[in-house]
Design a binder for these strands. Structure first.
Length: 637
RNA sequence: GGUUCCGUAGCUCAGCUGGAUAGAGCAGCUCACUUCUAAUGAGCAGGUCUUUGGUUCGAAUCCAAACGGGAUCACCA
């Protein structure tokens, strides 16, 4: 058991067992509340006395003194105590702290639970759209998902990292179509490919998705022009009537309402475009497994996967199991039919299938379109069931997806429960906030999207410049140097994105993200490198013999002792930010010690040895905790 | 409008199972390298914890309302 809990439990036990003797009445365990002692006050552990006062009917000071005396006599780890305005502060003996340091030193995997000792959990993250290259938002998603998986492993869970790849649907057909129609051919008669253009696969496909949108919008605008001129031949009368109705309704409206109406007209026109019709035809051909369409689809997807693979490599994330929507959507459909028979879903007149969630405070939600094709929800139901089939020992699933989909997941989990799946209660949406830029929201239309590859390249580049300027690089090979620049750049970026509570929306300042001072990844990496350098010069360490302990040293040990509880808390909260904040505290505390207390220069061998041991274990915990957020630490920098 | 998340220093964020004088980092101003890596440390300055009411011995923290901001409410994904 962790040292702090051990001490708290000992105190609690003695107080409860002797409450009759101490206070003349039996007390409730809930009034025994601990907290960390404030910095300004001497002490390590504080018992709050206020709750006792009501029961005991005496002053807080009296009660505190009574309890303090009693405990000091019976618990060896209590050196002495003080009562300050209703708080009973225990000073824990130096021996106890030093023995804790010794214990930490002996444990290789200090803070970690036994691997695979807890139920299996699947963590889904990343899950990109194959039409769009990964951007800043995906970086937060990937780092978060990867880190949560690591944190759960540290808590003893078996973890399966997965992602669902959104590889089918009308949007995919759009980029396929655009490539077929608009891609230029070279002298050999080939259209653009990653190999003949040198463009990264995901970027190339993304380019044609944008290209589609451009032509799509142009065609829609020209249709609106026709309509406005009264040229309505060849368009469905339903659309025309709706257009006339909308146009008339513009009369006397405010700007904002006008914009809404214009958007509706645009949608109307889009539905009449030949491009959309062609894309829809293509989707139908794809669903019918038309060989030519299927070949184009699998070829372009493979370009995207190659591109993503290289981005994931740069990110330092990986997956144990991939799911493809093209493989799970049919299962989802089957489940809907089963549910339809069981009465979970109902069919509307036009043939579409719905679920009524109004009794649960939600809306009616569609699960199958009237033409029988699936929607996002159907696929997610199928994927969830597929996963349980693949991994029967799965006890829960965590979906790392942005908070704009809070409603979707609420509905998804509810549907799974209504379908009678017991595991549905262990599905959890790890919902994280959007990443904003100083200029505001990222908008692809305004070109303010920060590309993941570009950003990673930039931070590594910046790390390179800084490190060449002030790093300790003598004797390193070019390969080692490049690894180091990468380590520092990516460490800074990951730490920057993970130090904020995942639930909250956060501000991403590009200039600040490559900063090296203050609460940053490189600040922590530097501390580690400095300790390693110290240890290299310090020689071997042996068991702790020292008995003195300076305040700065004790503060560092106290933080080390907390590490196991931090891992638990981070696991409970699914929050890498908890780990980040802890490492930062630890490093700050260590730096204070390092700056003020001599280590190698110390003449007393016992003290020197203890300080080296302390440093060694700080480095150990830094490295261990940084790995939980997917960051490596350098031996030197 | 319904639902939901959020509002703490100039900026970015901690703290929120109720507890002592609300903390960091950045930016600003001082100071400390012939020393174990100064990518560091010490200090100064900076606050009506959005507002109002309630619960309590005690509220940044819990409850309610108001104000301000985000997300979401498609036969899109």
């Amino acid at each position: 058991m962790e040292a702090l809990h051990f001490m708290e439990n000992q105190i609690k036990k003695i107080v409860l067992e002797n409450s009759e003797l101490l206070f003349g009445v039996n007390i409730d365990a809930s009034i025994i509340q601990f907290q960390k002692t404030r910095k300004e006050v001497e002490g390590d552990l504080t018992l709050v006395i206020f709750p006792f006062v009501k029961v005991l009917r005496c002053s807080p000071d009296e009660a505190g003194k009574k309890i303090g005396d009693f405990l000091q006599e019976r618990l060896s780890f209590i050196s002495h105590y003080s009562v300050v305005s209703g708080f009973l502060n225990f000073v824990i003996s130096n021996d106890y702290w030093l023995s804790q340091l010794e214990m930490i030193h002996e444990k290789m995997d200090f803070g970690f639970e036994k691997p695979n000792s807890k139920p299996t959990i699947m963590v889904e993250y990343s899950s990109p759209n194959t039409n769009k290259p990964l951007h800043l938002g995906h970086l937060r998603n990937n780092f978060l998902g990867y880190s949560v998986a690591e944190i759960l492993k540290a808590n003893g869970h078996k973890v399966i990292k997965s992602q669902i790849i959104n590889d089918r649907g009308i949007h995919i057909c759009k980029s396929m179509l655009a490539w077929e129609k608009f891609s230029p051919t070279n002298e050999k008669g080939e259209r653009e490919t990653p190999s003949n253009t040198g463009i990264k696969g995901d970027k190339l496909v993304g380019k044609y998705y944008v290209e589609f949108d451009k032509h799509f919008n142009a065609e829609a605008n020209s249709i609106i022009n026709h309509w406005e001129k009264g040229d309505v031949d060849g368009f469905s009368s339903k659309s025309i009537n709706e257009f006339i109705r909308l146009t008339e309704s513009k009369e006397g409206k405010e700007d904002k309402a006008l914009k809404g109406i214009d958007d509706k007209i645009k949608d109307l026109a889009k539905n009449e475009t030949s491009l959309l019709r062609e894309a829809k035809d293509m989707l139908i051909r794809w669903e019918a497994r038309d060989p030519q369409t299927y070949l184009l689809w699998s070829t372009m997807n493979s370009w995207v996967y190659d591109g993503f693979a290289s981005t994931y490599k740069s990110m330092g994330v990986d997956f144990d199991k991939l799911y493809y929507e093209s493989e799970t959507f049919l299962l989802g459909k089957d489940i809907v039919f089963e549910g339809l028979e069981k009465g979970v879903f109902f069919r509307k007149e036009d043939g579409s299938v719905w679920i009524d969630l109004t009794a649960d405070g939600l809306d009616e939600k569609i699960v199958l379109r009237s033409d029988g094709t699936t929607v996002y929800m159907t696929q997610d139901v199928g994927t969830a069931v597929d996963r349980i089939n693949d991994f029967p020992d799965l006890s829960g699933m965590i979906y790392t997806v942005g908070n704009e989909q809070d409603y979707h997941f609420k509905v998804l989990f509810l549907i799974l429960k209504k379908l009678g799946y017991s595991w549905a209660h262990n599905c959890f949406h790890l919902s994280y906030g959007m990443v904003d830029l100083p200029s505001g929201k990222m908008k692809s239309r305004e070109g303010t999207v920060v590309d993941a590859d570009d950003l990673m390249h930039e931070v590594v580049q910046s790390a390179k410049e800084m490190t060449q300027e002030r790093g300790y690089l003598e004797g390193m090979t070019d390969q080692d140097k490049n690894d180091l620049f990468n380590l520092i750049g990516m460490g800074g970026l990951k730490y920057y994105l993970l130090k904020v509570d995942p639930k909250k929306r956060m501000m991403f300042d590009p200039a600040e993200s490559i900063e090296l001072n203050g609460n940053t990844g490189p600040f922590i990496q530097y501390a580690h490198a400095r300790i390693k350098s110290l240890l290299a010069k310090g020689g071997e360490t042996s068991a702790v013999k020292a008995q003195e302990l300076a305040l700065a040293e004790k503060e560092v040990i106290k933080l080390l002792v907390e590490y196991p509880m931090i891992i638990q808390e981070a696991g409970r909260e699914l929050s890498p930010a908890v780990v980040c904040n802890y490492i930062f505290e630890l490093v700050k505390s260590y730096n204070q010690f390092y700056q003020n207390i001599p280590i190698l220069i110390e003449v007393n061998e016992d003290l020197k040895n203890m300080r080296l041991l302390l440093s060694k274990n700080v480095a150990k915990v830094i490295a261990s905790a940084m790995l939980l957020i997917g960051v490596n630490v350098p031996e030197r920098m």
